[in-house]
Amino acid sequence: MSAASEWSGGAIEEPLGERAKAAGIRVGLASPALLWVLLIVLIPNAIMLLYSFWTNGLGTIIQEFTTKNYSQALQSNVVRALLQRTFLIAVAASLIATAIAYPLAYLIVRRAGRYKLPLALLVVVPLWVSYLMRVFAWKIILGEKGVLNGLLQQAGVIDHPIKALLYSKVTVILTLTYVAVPYVFLSIFTALERLPTALYDAAGDCGASEWSTFRDIIWPLSRPAAVIGFAIAFVITFGDYVTPALVGGLQGTMLGSIILQEFGTANNWPLGAAIAMVILVVSFVFLGAVSLLARTEAVID
């Protein structure tokens, strides 16, 4: 806060009345931010919370407090199974994405030399291609008449196209992993890139081999970034409904699809709101737990 104090009135001793006035001006200046938080964050989420405690009565919303939606959602086998599946799919996709992105980032930072930046950019460029396209492309590749089956048939590996490639849990995990890799990579790459190369030298100098250097120095220092990357991936994949809708089929339905249904054809907003709240709470609790892993005492300057 250096340039900052210009607007802040300064810390010089002022009479009490003056100080209160200055504080008033500051709140006034900050009012757009307060308004933003109120209108875009607090009120919508409060209303969503309200909805989740109301009920649906033939196309109209009955505005009476009830926990029926939650008990209905949490007792429903479908919702519970889907919650479990969605959670597992999101964790699996995020873990695999982290397992792919970490070694790749390490390799690029340590070995790519002057090609470091171009190679890193190549990993994140797919983020700039339409999200739908990235998901849908897998349908072209994995479909019954898709590219992979075509290739395999042409190569004579198989006689008949494999149907099971598309519309399964595995397909959803694969596609979500694909979507998540660049985000996780970005988080890890920037962290590894920030580590001074002298740390590698210093560890080698102390007698540590490349593996020991990684285990004792580099991993402890980059673990928070890996955890953050994993968390970003989890948030993205946990609430996704586009991917399961396109490549999931029945096997790959996720919780997002149900919400879509409640707000669409079923037209049961309160139940949808309750499920959305469940998603929100589960992701917050999970991220809270995960963030414990990201704690570190190290300060890198």
């Binding site: 875009i40 209303i47 969503m48 993205i236 997002g256 919400i259 959305a276 998603i279 992701s283």
Partner: peptide
């Protein structure tokens, strides 16, 4: 926020 949650909260508002 997960995109879906943002969308739903705004929709209901």
């Amino acid at each position: 926020l997960p995109g879906m949650v943002l969308a739903l909260s705004l929709l209901m508002m």
